[in-house]
Structure formats: C-alpha cells, structure tokens
C-alpha cells in the first residue's frame, strides 16, 4: 500500500484571530488514495500534521451542508469533491467567500441564520384545520411546484457564488430566496403576503441580477436563479395590479 501512495499538496488559508492579522496560506503534503475526498484530506492534516487547523464537517455524504469551502476558488462541499481530480497539481482550500472568516475554514453564519429566520421558513397554514378534519392534502402536481426548492441543505455555497451578495450583504441572497419560494409555492401555505414584503423589496428578489452561478454550484440541484426569476414576474405583476386588486395596495 505504502509504495503506491500518492502525495498531494494542499494549501490552506489559515486565520487564527489571536495571532494572524490577516489570513495566510500554509501548505501541507498529504498522502492520499483515489477514494479520498478533500474533506478527508483536511481531516488528515488535522489528525497527523497540524491539529490547529479548524473546519466544520459532520455527515461526509453531502446532506448536512457543513463542509462547504472554496476549493481552487470554487464553492464546493469538500466531502463531495475528490483529491484525485486535482492530482498531480496542488489544490487550495479556503473559507467560503463573501462571509466573514471566524477561524481558518470556518465562516461566521450569523447573517445567513438571521435572514433564514426572517423569511418564516415553515408552512403557515392557509386554513386552520382540526385533527378531526384530517391532514392537508396535496396532489403530486402541487408538490412538484416546490419540491426541488425543498432540497436546500443551507450549505451557503450559493452565497459564496453570488456576486450580488458579495457586493451588498443586505441582499437576502439565493438560498434563502429559493427557500422562501419553496414555502410560497406550497399549496398548503398561506404566508405569501407576510413573506413577500421582503421579497418585493430591493433586498429581496430585485437584488438579483440573474448571474445564475448560484444554481451552478448548488450541490443538491436546487435552482435559486429560477426561483428568483419566477418571483420577479409575480412581484412585477403585483407592482402594477396592486391598486386594482382588493387588499393589494401597500399598507
């Protein structure tokens, strides 16, 4: 085994607030096998080379959304990206762009979490039903309206991809707007009016300039650019018809 072992160089962007004034690159030589992910490479560094390297991870199978990082300048889940694809070259890993670095590869997700809460990411029932009335029924067609948008794992790769969020952090951003659409588009939900006050603002759908990189980097096949574009249409229709629709005008 040892004689077939390959070695790859991993450059890690380090930032230890107690000692680094600004982030610095540090290179590690990591032995790897073809089945090893970038996450496993970074774990190797922590286990055998440098225990001070900090990063988030949990599931190792692209469902928890913890291990997102910039890998050669592209936002990726490190558990879903393989070292072999970079060999014989080296690779660079750094914290997700556009978010403040807390330490090494760990970003501060406070802004994201605050925004996530602000859109009421839960079903607000259209009509209250008692237990005796039974469940809220939905046809497969109605489910198809939102299903792909419900696959979001909050990994924030789309935030690292979005140039608009990078320019103006007040913009709600792709993932959360897609999630807003997920609830708005659910036939059982009646919370559209509450959520769209944000959606119809500059900080909402209109902060997007349809770059589309968010949809490209999403590891779960969610298409936030599409969600936002659909809602720009809804928002525009509402903008022009609000005065002739009962209850449509601004409060």
């Amino acid at each position: 085994m040892a004689d077939t072992e390959k070695i790859i160089e991993i450059e890690v962007l380090r930032y230890r607030p107690e000692q680094d004034k600004e982030p610095v690159w540090q290179t590690y030589k990591v032995p790897f096998t073809d089945d090893m992910s970038v996450l496993q490479g970074v774990q190797y560094i922590k286990d055998y080379l440098d225990e001070t390297v900090s990063f988030r991870w949990s599931c190792r199978m692209a469902i928890c959304g913890s291990c997102g990082m910039m890998i050669d300048d592209k936002p990726k889940l490190s558990c879903k990206t393989f070292l072999r694809d970079y060999y014989p070259g080296k690779l660079r890993v750094e914290a997700l762009k556009h978010l403040p670095i807390e330490r090494d590869l760990i970003v501060d997700a406070t802004d994201f979490m605050k925004k996530l809460e602000s859109i009421k990411p839960y079903i607000i029932p259209k009509e209250e039903r008692t237990l005796a009335q039974g469940e809220y029924l939905q046809t497969p067609q109605q489910r198809d309206m939102y299903e792909q948008f419900s696959s979001c794992i909050n990994c924030m790769l789309c935030y690292a991809a979005c140039p608009q969020y990078g320019l103006n952090p007040k913009f709600t951003g792709p993932g959360i707007l897609a999630l807003m659409h997920r609830y708005n588009a659910d036939s059982r939900d009646g919370g559209q009016a509450e959520r769209n006050e944000l959606g119809y603002a500059d900080e909402g759908y209109w902060g997007c300039t349809a770059v589309g990189y968010c949809s490209e980097v999403c590891p779960k096949g969610v298409d936030p650019a599409n969600a936002i574009n659909q809602n720009k249409m809804n928002s525009a229709i509402n903008y022009f018809t609000r005065f002739i629709t009962p209850g449509g005008a601004d409060k």
């Binding site: 006050e197 119809y200 603002a201 209109w206 720009k232 022009f240």
Partner: peptide
Amino acid sequence: MKRSNEPIFWSLFG
C-alpha cells in the same frame, strides 16, 4: 421593507 421600483425597469427589460 420598502417596495422596489425595479419592476418598471425590469418589465421594460423583459
């Protein structure tokens, strides 16, 4: 949140 006036320009754009 202030409603955006972007729909005017976006509609013409569209």
